[in-house]
């Protein structure tokens, strides 16, 4: 099973992270594990990649963060989606569906392109 390209993972990182945070607030390690589990290992975020993306989304106001103390007694930063983030996710869903429809249509009309 081939892994997806870096560019595609980069482009889809915002909707993926926002979708995961829609369910519950979460922290870096858990987000990475969730993504790995949901995508069956096709998408694996590196730690060096995930945190800068999370911070970028936070700067844009799409997610909010707060420090909490975990069961282990250690500090942990939790992220949750904001109202702005929910709106953005809706737009992202529409955009990705549109892209999906366009590509499917092209391949249906011109099956020899696949």
């Amino acid at each position: 099973m081939e892994k997806l390209s870096k560019e595609l993972i980069g482009a889809s990182s915002t909707p993926i992270i926002l979708s995961i945070l829609t369910k519950n607030e979460s922290y870096g390690y858990e987000i990475i594990q969730n993504i790995k589990e949901i995508t069956g290992g096709k998408i694996e975020f590196g730690e060096g990649t995930l945190y800068p993306v999370l911070h970028k989304l936070e700067k844009k106001g799409l997610i909010q963060s707060s420090w909490k103390v975990a069961e282990s007694g250690r500090k942990r930063k939790y992220y949750k989606i904001s109202n702005e983030g929910k709106k953005e996710l809706k737009i992202e869903k529409e955009n990705w569906n549109t892209i999906n429809q366009i590509i499917s249509k092209i391949w249906k009309v011109e099956p020899n392109l696949i």
Binding site: Y27, G28, Y29, E47, Y51, H55, A70, S72, R74, K75, R76, K77
Partner: peptide
């Protein structure tokens, strides 16, 4: 500093796992 604490917490989670 916040980045470092976050990465440290991540390292601990990985070690625990």
């Amino acid at each position: 500093k916040s980045n470092i604490i976050e990465l440290e917490s991540h390292l601990f989670d990985l070690i625990d796992d």
